[in-house]
């Protein structure tokens, strides 16, 4: 069964609110960079960057991270074959906002933190997600949340973005 819990309007609003909250918490947008986690996190990050550009007339760097080599359920080959730093800008002394679509166990975020290392020492890293569905397995929490959606562990959350899926929305599949 599939049920839409957030429509495109509500998703747009959530992104707008997250953008304002990023300005609130970082006391402006000085040194802020956005790093999206592939695939959909990148599009979410780009939309936040567009909004920041509209408001503050500043270009915020947006990076894309592929966390696959850093997953903790993969064979531990990353250590033997170090993966090159993926971003085309340094995060040293930056205020990094990691962006993903769904926050679930927290393992993706842990992997993303690993992937960020090697880019220098950021001032701070915060986390923005469109959906927090609970069931954390690591001590990780989000700073900016689009919507808290309580779920059962056998349910799935599907975030759709126009760029990939042809429409915006968040569905719960059980």
């Amino acid at each position: 069964m599939q049920k839409e819990v957030v429509d495109s309007m509500a998703m747009k609003r959530a992104l707008t609110r997250i953008t304002y909250e990023i300005i609130e918490q970082n006391k402006g947008i000085r040194d802020v960079v956005l790093v999206g986690i592939k695939t959909r996190g990148v599009y979410v990050a780009q939309r936040i960057a567009e909004r920041l550009h509209q408001l503050e007339d500043a270009v915020i760097p947006v990076g894309a991270l592929d966390i696959t080599p850093f997953r903790d359920d993969q064979p531990q080959n990353a250590i033997q074959n170090p993966v090159a730093y993926q971003l085309d800008f340094s995060v040293a002394d930056k205020k990094v906002v990691l962006v993903d679509d769904v926050l679930y166990t927290g393992r993706t975020i842990r992997a993303a933190l690993d992937a960020l290392m090697g880019g220098g020492r950021p001032q701070c890293i915060s986390l923005a997600v469109l959906v927090d569905r609970g069931h954390r397995e690591l001590p990780i929490r989000a700073d900016f949340i689009g919507k808290n959606i309580p779920t059962a562990s056998q349910e799935r959350i599907k975030v759709s973005v126009t760029e990939v899926d042809g429409h915006d929305g968040i569905e719960i599949i059980s």
């Binding site: 609003r13 609110r17 808290n148």
Partner: peptide, 19 residues
Amino acid sequence: RDVFDEFVESMQQARGPVW
């Protein structure tokens, strides 16, 4: 009317999740 939803969502966020 969306602005009212924005307000409600701001309040929910400020209060934190209910679980």
